[in-house]
């Protein structure tokens, strides 16, 4: 359960986005601009948080009245090894040092559902964290680092699988399926695609983040829709958009089937009127955007 420090929605004076050039950062930036909320968007090109000097540079850029959204991280596609872990921790160390020096009104830390054991099929915020790899351990440690900031109201957001047009990760799911269908007219599933997962559209993540910023929410919240679909269903939804026959190929199963469902009761309690884009609609939206872009 999260707590709204501002029960009535109130625009932050300014939002500082760290990792603003990324897939999620761009969506949040768009949302902030739509709401005319002043923002300072910093990417690694502006400030390399992994470098020791970054703490002072960021401190100089920050104001005590800022809300800081920390998205910057080297994702698993950039490395899953110990050096990557240490760089990610250094980024957080410098961020925390800057905030400790200047202070801030609110911090939103973007974590990951990798902090949970992948074998747990039903997840809520009460599910004990049990990261199974360095990436999960990194986010878990960074969550604790954020919470150790004295006097700073901190919200930890743990998103599930995010999809959207500009996702660069190409991980197994809607993004990869769309690209595969477009490129080769074929979507290849692991096994029969029986595994169920919760896929959230990046715009929903951005909208949820904005709500949390407006209420200066603190605590921990999973960013998930509460509805899980099998990968086969996702493949069918993607295939439907192409208006031609996209072959969905099943392969011999190499790993046991696992499922992941989210209990989003805490999200509903925090924002009773919240609504998420249904998967079919989200996939259709991404497809439209893709056509418009091309």
């Amino acid at each position: 359960m999260i707590i709204h420090q501002s029960p009535a929605a109130q625009k932050p004076e300014r939002v500082v986005l760290l990792g603003a050039r990324g897939f999620i950062g761009a969506a949040i930036r768009k949302e902030l601009d739509a709401q005319r909320i002043p923002r300072l968007a910093l990417s690694s090109a502006d400030l390399n948080l992994a470098e020791a000097a970054a703490a002072d540079e960021l401190a100089a850029a920050l104001r005590a009245t800022d809300a800081v959204v920390m998205l910057a991280a080297l994702t698993p596609d950039k490395g899953r090894d110990i050096p990557t872990l240490m760089k990610n921790l250094a980024m957080m160390q410098n961020t925390c040092a800057a905030i400790a020096k200047t202070g801030c009104a609110h911090m939103v830390y973007f974590s990951s559902d990798a902090v949970y054991d992948g074998a747990v099929s039903r997840v809520s915020e009460d599910t004990p964290t049990s990261p199974q790899d360095l990436y999960g351990a990194m986010h878990h440690t960074r969550e604790i680092m954020a919470r150790s900031l004295a006097g700073v109201p901190v919200l930890v957001l743990r998103p599930t699988l995010i999809y959207g047009l500009d996702d660069t990760h190409n991980s197994y799911g809607p993004n990869r399926f769309r690209r595969a269908a477009q490129k080769g007219g074929k979507i290849t599933l692991f096994g029969g695609g029986e595994e169920t997962r919760d896929h959230i559209h990046v715009d929903d993540v951005a909208a949820l983040t904005l709500r949390c910023l407006l209420h200066r929410s603190t605590g921990t919240l999973n960013a998930a829709t509460g509805t899980s679909h099998s990968f086969h269903e996702v493949a069918e939804a993607v295939s439907k958009q192409f208006g031609k026959t996209v072959e969905i190929v099943k392969t011999p199963r190499a790993n046991p089937i696992t499922h992941r469902h989210y209990d989003v009761a805490n999200t509903i309690k925090a924002f009773p009127d919240i609504r998420f884009i249904p998967l079919e609609d989200g996939v259709a939206r991404v497809h439209r955007e893709m056509l418009e872009k091309s």
Partner: peptide, 9 residues
């Protein structure tokens, strides 16, 4: 606790 939320959900 989980079932308490049935109506809300």
């Amino acid at each position: 606790r989980h079932r308490r939320d049935w109506a809300l959900q």
